[in-house]
């Protein structure tokens, strides 16, 4: 069974019951992400493996890039 979450502003269908860390590992750019906002709150990296994603969750996955 699948659920819908919003990742970086885009509706995304994912498998139900996945933890954030497990879902991220399935994406490109595994080593790029540096910080995650989960439903509007910064989520400490240590909590990624134990945070299970639910229908309607909102994620912002961010990376530090070159900038002035």
């Amino acid at each position: 069974m699948n659920i819908n979450i919003t990742v970086n502003g885009k509706e995304t269908e994912i498998q139900d019951g996945l933890a954030l860390r497990a879902w991220l590992e399935g994406q490109n750019n595994f080593k790029a992400w540096t910080v995650v906002e989960y439903n509007g709150e910064i989520l400490e990296r240590e909590l990624w493996p134990s945070t299970v994603l639910h229908e309607g969750d909102k994620l912002e996955v961010l990376v530090l890039l070159g900038g002035g």
Partner: peptide, 10 residues
Amino acid sequence: TMALRRVDWQ
């Protein structure tokens, strides 16, 4: 300096 941006999955 640097900037923070959304990960581009592509």
